[in-house]
Structures are given as structure tokens and as C-alpha cells.
Design a protein around this nucleic acid. Structure first.
Lengths: 116, 116
DNA sequence: TTATTAGTTAGCCGTCTGGCTAACTGTTGT
DNA sequence: ACAACAGTTAGCCAGACGGCTAACTAATAA
């Protein structure tokens, strides 16, 4: 599933930092690497993972590879989360309605008891 | 970081299914296990991971453990995603404005050239 | 043309995942 | 008292992850 890889890619702080950086525009591998105290090959692994999740795309021209954010992948996650939220909010609404009904019945029962 | 664990927890289809199930209300471990062709201990591991990410809470009464969704954890993820979205949308806006300015300058230059 | 730069490939390491079985604990129904 | 039920613990396994170094390729600058 696509979601597996996107969530998986975002489960690492280094990769989230890369995504955040790319929100501000394209960057080369070197630029992306600068903020991290990490050997290049390690960082490249992260980039590969981001690419295979669909969150990042890259193209090499000459000897430099430029990376860019693929926002559709992020949107996929947002959609999934929104769907879950909708479901549990609907459930909470039903619950609330149920409680309201209970309260009303409580009152009317109280009145009946008094008037009896 | 909390986000590491939440994203990590959601990177598995089984665990996402559990989360979806819990959107519809509490459930015991046994109920959660039913839809899956998986040994109980395997499923329990998933539940542990969901718990340590903060997505799920559980309490044991008697011999049955009830699990419930902790929606704040899901909200954390939504907040993070929304923040990223805001950043790159602002950037796209700036880009668009820039392109608009270019177009206008283009036009005025064209007029100047004609009138010369 | 030679050095420098930018990235890549290969391979090593310890840890975490995601599944399993087998055996155990504690609770509840008969 | 005992059987059945609901979960738990322990331990095994293969494979992925996140880091490293060393050595390599290809493009560009001097």
C-alpha cells in the first residue's frame, strides 16, 4: 500500500526535516545534507526512502541531483486522516444525541413521578 | 519525538485497520483480533505499538482488555501536516505573484518598445 | 590534464519489526 | 473444583532500518 510507505517515510525525524526543507523549494542532495551531521551515504538512504514513498522526486543534471516535494503524497495522508476524523466525529455526535435523549427522558420521568 | 512513534505506528496496514475499527468505538483485544488471520501474540504486539505511540489506550477489567482511540495523537499528525501545507502553499503564492509581476513587466516593456 | 566536487555503490554492524509457537496466568461459567 | 476463555510472556526467525567507512564514477574548474 502507498500509505505504508508514506507514513513509514515520515516516521523519521531526519526525513521529516528534509520534507520541511523541501516545502521551501527544491534543493540539491548537498544542500539537504548540510544541516545534518551525517555521512552522505546515510543521507542518500533517506532520500531514496522518501523517493520510493512518493514524497520526493529528484532529477540529476550534470553532477548535481535536485530534489523536490511531491505534495500529492502528503495529500494522501491528509485525506486518510480526515476520513478517520469524520468517522469518529460522527460517532461522537451520535453519542451526544443519545445522551441528550437520555436527559429528556429523565426529566419527563421525574415529572410523571411527581404528578403521580 | 512523539511524531516518530505516531507515524511509525500508522505505517502498518494492520495497525491502521485497528485504528479505523476503534474510530467506531471501544473494542476488546479479542474483538480487534477477529478480522485478522493472525496469532493473538502478533496482534498484541501491534496493540502495544499503538499504545506506546499514544494512539490507543487500554484498560483491563477482569480478563478482558478494552482499547480506545486517543484522538489527540491523530490530531498531532494533522497539525504537523497542516503546518507543512501552509508553508508550501505560501511559497506557491509567492511564486505566483512573482510570475504575475513578470507578465506585467513583459507587457509594459512591449508597449514601450512599440511607442519608441 | 589534472584536481576538486557531487554523488554513488558496496558492504559491515547492531537494533527494531512482524510474524510464529509453546507454555503460562488469571477470570469466569458450570 | 474444574474447564474454558482472554490475554500474556518468552523465545525464535527472517528481513528491514539507520548509521558507518572505503572505494568508485562522472562532471566541472583551474
Amino acid at each position: 500500500m502507498q500509505l505504508d510507505n508514506v507514513f513509514g517515510a515520515l516516521s523519521d525525524a531526519t526525513r521529516r526535516a528534509i520534507v520541511m526543507r523541501l516545502c521551501d523549494g527544491e534543493a540539491s542532495v548537498g544542500e539537504l545534507a548540510k544541516p545534518f551531521e551525517m555521512a552522505l551515504p546515510s543521507l542518500m538512504k533517506h532520500i531514496r526512502i522518501l523517493e520510493s514513498s512518493g514524497l520526493v522526486a529528484s532529477e540529476k543534471t550534470g553532477r548535481v541531483r535536485m530534489c523536490s516535494l511531491q505534495t500529492e503524497a502528503l495529500a494522501t495522508v491528509e485525506v486518510w486522516l480526515a476520513a478517520q476524523r469524520e468517522i469518529w466525529e460522527q460517532r461522537l455526535d451520535r453519542l451526544e444525541m443519545y445522551v441528550e435523549r437520555l436527559k429528556k427522558r429523565e426529566k419527563s420521568n421525574a415529572r410523571k413521578r411527581k404528578s403521580k
